[in-house]
Amino acid sequence: MRSRFPDPRDILQNAARILVYPLFLLNGLLLGLLCSPCVCVYCAWKRRPWNISSDAYVLDERNGEEDEPEHLVETGNASSLPDAPTKGLSTPSFSCLFPSFPEKPSTTINIKDVKYSTLYLSARDGTRLAVDVWLPPACKRAEGRKVGCVLHQARYYRSFKLWGPGNLARNGLPINLLNNEYFERFLSQGLAVVSMDIRGSGASFGCSRGPWLEVETEDAMVVMDWILHQPWSNGRLGLWGISYEGTRALLSGVAGHRGVKAVVPMYMFLDVYSDVGFIGGMHLRGFVQNWERITRLLDHNKLPKIVFPFTDGVQPVSSAGPATLKAALREHRGNWR
């Protein structure tokens, strides 16, 4: 027969269990407080002087795009160019504690001044493509303001949805992790940014049977036509991307759209065989396998939270509802088949 009162040993045990959690928490805090100065000092000491500042490059590329050169701010610092690597250690700097690729451009923009919207556009075959539109502060202030636009074709998400602290920091707006600094730079200089998910990736429908398909160029043409018909567009387009997306920018750029005035393909591949797949005739298995794994996780929206803790997968098209994203992700199962 069970006694009416719980066994005092049980009470003790439960109390201990409950107490142990705050204790763990405190321990963790203490450990963090003790470790973080050590980590700071170590990182600062490890920091070397020849880290390339991306500022100089960004300025050069901006010169290629022709909108409003008077907005160009001279921030490139000649002394920040890569120095001889044997000078010894630089003065400690705590900026090394933050991700430094790409390094933060010095021109910043208040995210509250930017106008963001996301929508689906239909490709020629009816496949729905997710598109982000970022309009610069000038368009938000004056309704009829016409600006140039940078188009970005994203293979690694046009933007990540954020949650919790990430959401607070971004005022509820999503973020493109690879290109955010560049996007902010474009916006701060009065350019609009349109980022689209390539079919088969992100929140777009359809499937991607292989990399750099011709149909991705056709999709870009549809989006470029759409941009030129927007009331905020001045009819001038630039294409931007890094790696896969850079190669994509070049391929879309040479397709001959009348609006394209500049293409900035960063770290792109001219010959997929000898530049990335089989360098020197040998299979670059390590990179290709890692790329495939990561891209597959992204395509099925299953990137583990631990990689980017404050993100919550791909940014859905808000007007379409969560079921639409699920339907889009279902179509991605046909990727690479």
């Binding site: 750099w212 190669t247 070049l250 391929l251 040479v254 591949f269 001219l270 010959d271 997929v272 065989y273």
Partner: peptide, 8 residues
Amino acid sequence: SSSLGPSV
């Protein structure tokens, strides 16, 4: 085999 067709 080049991705750009007539390659540079």
